[in-house]
Amino acid sequence: MKGNSWALKLSAGFGFIFLYAPIIALIVYSFNESKLVTVWGGWSIKWYVELFQNEQIMNAAWVSLKIAFISASLAAVLGTLAGFVLSRMGKFTGKTIMAGWVTAPLVMPEVITGLSLLLLFVAMESMFGWPAGRGTTTIVIAHTTFCLAYVAVVVQSRLASMDETLEEAAMDLGAKPVSLFFLVTLPLIAPAILSGWLLSFTLSLDDLVIASFVSGPGNSTLPMVIFSKVRLGVTPEINALATLMILAVSIAVIAAIVIMRRQNRFQGP
């Protein structure tokens, strides 16, 4: 095949510039001395210093990190089970319904998910007295539910691309289902679970809409604080925060790619 045509390269190049220009601008302006975010006043790290002195942002970041860690871990367990059930358990009653419940949260508009979970929590509280009020617990349940879907899809596609001969061999050699899962299947899908966990962690850390619905007073997550600040205009501290988060994500993505490459297969998101 001849080389790619210049038209293709040009339009793809334009696409990549479109993807990166805003991010690069954000990073550059985070080092801007001037408070007027878009007027250049020289290089400075003062917004980073202010960021770490901002107690509201730091508290919210801590709340968000805790929630993201717990939700991602719960979602990794439940999502792996769901993905495993859908691709390795053959047919069972309700499989189609479950498959629908696993894919629908991926595209469900967040306002619907958020509202429906809040109304559920309110109804549950008046019926069983649990969960008492809204706060960390309700956010964790909500995040686990939508992250579970992502983990399930990643695990499912990994299992689908993996041939079953290893598992069959282990079964022929007399492995019981439980040890088969823990000794053979789990190590094989571990990279997929890890990338599902990381994806869940970042999704939870990023969620504004669902958390706004299901959080209680005094439980502002980081995106909620960012949103309330940003709504009034561009804030230099948020630029600094964004840069740090982009840096963290870049490291995680590169690490994930290295792990994936070791598996010698590239799975989608």
Partner: peptide, 16 residues
């Protein structure tokens, strides 16, 4: 990489 980067912050980037 952008897919993993905060959605909220990517929207915010356009504000500036």
């Amino acid at each position: 990489l952008p897919f993993w980067t905060s959605f909220l912050l990517r929207v915010y980037a356009w504000m500036a």
